[in-house]
Simulated scan of single mutants.
Amino acid sequence: ARQGGGATASRSAALVRPAAAPREPSATQEGEHPGGYADPDDPSEGPRTPQGSSEPLHTGSDGGAASPGTVTREEIIDRARTWLAAKVPYSMSAYRSDGYRQDCSGFVSMAWDLRSNQWTGSLASFGERITKDELQPGDMLLFHNAQDPEDGSHVTLFGGWADAAHTKYTAYEQTPPRTRSRTTPYAYWTNSSRYIPYRPKNLASGSAGPQSSAFPGAAAFGPGKAGAHVTRLGAMLVARGAGRYYRIGPGPRWTEADRRATA
């Protein structure tokens, strides 16, 4: 069985697939407890959901595993935003038309253009471990509980810092009930100390280096403009109190939210 965790899953199937069932927080409306727990005063309690294993894209063909594509940081965020705009429902058994599983690890597999469905126990092999100070948009924050994958395992995409002190960031994630992006405390709402930052190994040449702090000029901002500098500007504006203008957080493409925040 590709998707374990159900009452009908066979005992033998559980022995041949990766350990399943991360516990992932539910999406909420603004002002609600961000973890989606039954008891908002007890974040140690949360829904348990099964997790898919490593597998090729679910396209209906018999094609084997493909090598990851090459992506830029801007492309990673753009790919993540396609699911955000489509409000893709969270599911461990459903697949998008592109073949990616609609859970947290399938979402990162899609954004990183891995051309296969991975799970929290395998995603680290597609990245290079980095430090918090090295995080840039498109990197991931991964918590895989090897002792008990059902207990808290989850992964998010880092979309950029939301404050100058680097205590909050824009997280893109696939979590019930659908894809979301929101300002999140570093490294996450729960099990914060256990999340590890990774940079994708398949970044396009020249996109993995440190961000320049030089001002690129006013011509680099405005309608139709895009790039990491736009995300950085948005993060600076949020740090100065303009967060109310960003419904889903700063991103690499210039939007009306950036214009209003700048004004």
Score class of each variant (00 low, 15 high):
residue 254 W to D: 00
residue 96 R to A: 14
residue 177 P to F: 02
residue 225 K to I: 00
residue 162 A to E: 03
residue 256 E to G: 10
residue 196 I to P: 00
residue 14 A to Y: 13
residue 252 P to L: 03
residue 178 R to Q: 12
residue 220 A to T: 07
residue 32 E to Q: 14
residue 8 T to W: 15
residue 204 A to Y: 14
residue 106 G to Q: 09
residue 193 S to T: 12
residue 11 R to K: 12
residue 199 R to N: 08
residue 21 A to H: 09
residue 73 R to K: 02
residue 249 G to M: 02
residue 13 A to I: 06
residue 83 W to P: 03
residue 7 A to Q: 10
residue 107 F to N: 07
residue 220 A to R: 13
residue 29 Q to M: 13
residue 79 R to F: 12
residue 233 L to E: 00
residue 140 M to C: 11
residue 93 S to R: 11
residue 243 G to I: 03
residue 126 F to Q: 08
residue 202 N to P: 11
residue 32 E to L: 01
residue 183 T to N: 05
residue 42 D to R: 12
residue 160 G to H: 05
residue 75 E to T: 02
residue 135 L to S: 01
residue 32 E to S: 06
residue 183 T to Y: 15
residue 249 G to R: 04
residue 215 F to N: 15
residue 98 D to R: 08
residue 54 S to Y: 00
residue 220 A to K: 10
residue 67 S to K: 09
residue 238 V to L: 03
residue 107 F to V: 02
residue 195 Y to K: 05
residue 59 T to R: 07
residue 110 M to L: 11
residue 173 E to P: 08
residue 48 R to Q: 08
residue 38 A to L: 11
residue 235 A to E: 02
residue 261 A to L: 10
residue 225 K to P: 00
residue 28 T to P: 03
residue 97 S to A: 12
residue 96 R to S: 15
residue 69 G to H: 09
residue 99 G to P: 14
residue 56 P to Q: 05
residue 12 S to P: 08
residue 100 Y to K: 04
residue 77 I to E: 05
residue 220 A to M: 05
residue 43 P to M: 07
residue 235 A to K: 00
residue 20 A to E: 10
residue 123 L to V: 05
residue 132 K to D: 13
residue 155 V to W: 04
residue 201 K to T: 11
residue 235 A to M: 01
residue 59 T to A: 01
residue 175 T to R: 14
residue 34 P to Y: 06
residue 110 M to S: 12
residue 64 G to C: 02
residue 168 K to R: 15
residue 45 E to K: 04
residue 245 Y to Q: 06
residue 52 G to V: 04
residue 2 R to Q: 07
residue 130 I to K: 10
residue 101 R to H: 09
residue 27 A to M: 07
residue 49 T to I: 13
residue 72 T to P: 01
residue 239 A to I: 00
residue 83 W to R: 05
residue 218 A to R: 14
residue 241 G to W: 01
residue 167 T to D: 06
residue 228 A to H: 06
residue 150 E to C: 11
